[in-house]
Design a protein around this nucleic acid. Structure first.
Length: 147
DNA sequence: GCCAACGTTGGC
DNA sequence: GCCAACGTTGGC
């Protein structure tokens, strides 16, 4: 799951422990949360649009998907008048911190790893803020880059 | 700050 | 339903 640290960083999650993953406004990314995520699923917490983009923490999904109620709040940046309580357009899950990593696993490093070829994150033009990671790739990242 | 790669919107 | 115009993402 990607986030811009100026918006919501791993340190925010360290402080909060659990957070709503609101504000995803892309159908493909939404569908991953809405349809595919399960409680207990592992999450790679990724900082985008920053000096050293990369994985900065580990987390887990700790709720089923449910409507992103920020989309109903006219005062929210994530307000969408087309999303209603009767027919919610956007969904989210809750995410719980597992740990903040001691060092960033940089995008640069990930790209150099032949075992990660094919990982969605590394595909050209991949902009999805929520994307799947295969068990193999996840296990390799944990084994190779964390203690 | 540039810009390539995507997504979305809306006129037709 | 096509597609041009526009907006956004995000690495660099």
């Amino acid at each position: 799951m990607k986030t811009e640290p100026t918006t919501y960083s791993i340190d925010h999650l360290v402080a909060e422990n659990v957070t709503h993953w609101e504000g995803v406004r892309n159908y493909q990314a939404r569908n991953f949360m809405k349809n595919d995520m399960r409680i207990g699923d592992d999450v790679l917490f990724y900082h985008s649009n920053t000096k050293v983009p990369g994985i900065v923490g580990l987390a887990t999904v700790c709720s089923k998907s449910y409507p992103d109620f920020f989309s109903w709040d006219p005062d929210s940046n994530y307000f969408d008048p087309k999303s209603t309580k009767e027919n919610p357009r956007w969904f989210m899950v809750d995410v719980k911190l597992k740990c903040k990593l001691d060092a960033v696993i940089s995008l640069h490093k990930l790209k150099e790893d032949p075992k990660l070829i094919g990982m969605t994150l590394l595909n050209k033009g991949s902009r999805l803020s929520v994307q799947p990671v295969s068990d193999t790739h996840y296990a390799h990242i944990i084994k190779a880059y964390t203690i």
